[in-house]
Design a protein around this nucleic acid. Sequence first.
DNA 1: CATGATTCTGTATATTTATGCAAGACAAAA
DNA 2: TTTTGTCTTGCATAAATATACAGAATCATG
Lengths: 150, 150
Amino acid sequence: MTKQARQFAIKELIAARPIGSQETLRRELGKRGFRVTQATLSRDMNDLGVSRTMQGGMPRYAIPSAAGMTALSPLVGAEVVSIDANESLIVVHTLPGCANTVGEFIDVRRHPDIIGTVAGDNTLLVVPISTKKTSHVMQFLKHTLIEGAA
Amino acid sequence: MTKQARQFAIKELIAARPIGSQETLRRELGKRGFRVTQATLSRDMNDLGVSRTMQGGMPRYAIPSAAGMTALSPLVGAEVVSIDANESLIVVHTLPGCANTVGEFIDVRRHPDIIGTVAGDNTLLVVPISTKKTSHVMQFLKHTLIEGAA
DNA sequence: CATGATTCTGTATATTTATGCAAGACAAAA
DNA sequence: TTTTGTCTTGCATAAATATACAGAATCATG
């Protein structure tokens, strides 16, 4: 029952259902075998950068998407927020100011199906050699940037 | 000293500086002539949908990004020079150095048909989720950027 | 093993936020 | 004017969250 495992469970729970208080969260975690106090959860919230909002009198916790990713892969891919594509282009979202780094990281690999990359501030455009190769490149990127970090 | 005026001031304050508690906010508002109690602010937070996050032991309020950006609408429109597209990309020309601002402005809208944006100096690339959606996105951008939508 | 440094956690409590209730302000209808 | 209803607010307090402190647990080193 590591701290890491617990915080992962917290992210899952918060993302899945409307959790409104640390006490509620504590009970849900209890069902899953994590027995901790509210104080610990308060610290976890801090670590995870979770935010709390009131809406129509109902409180609700939410994970900032970027923070979620960051916590997931503390290593190389920590800067990558998301990877999406249309038929002919792939867009990698990164933390602010990190697109350049990620772009160079990809360039160095010299993947044969990637023509090149263009980096903005927090967005990286990856151009595949052919629309037919787009999904291949997607897989490559997800593997390299996300799984590769863990 | 309307409720409306007060809530507007709250948005400004929260956007401008790191406000960590309703009590702090109350004092700041006091300096500006809004004398209210913490209870009222708690209700305002609910109305505005403001969220609170702990980071490194320091609390901080934040406005859901779209709400904060709304005020910028008229300014952004002035920066846009032209909007063009081919089948798979949309190019927004802006005044020199403004592409970044316009890009962020579009990003926070989180339009479902927009995968992402890449900003250069005076040129902004907008990537639609599909070539079929390009014209839709064009319309959205023209409406949002030029006519200055709410 | 012993020592010290570091991390993690619970307890108790301080701090902060949310809310039930009643009072005041205002508007529309009688 | 009086009545009725809606809206907003403050007061007092309940509810929720953060934190100082001390006790374990973990780990690297001598």
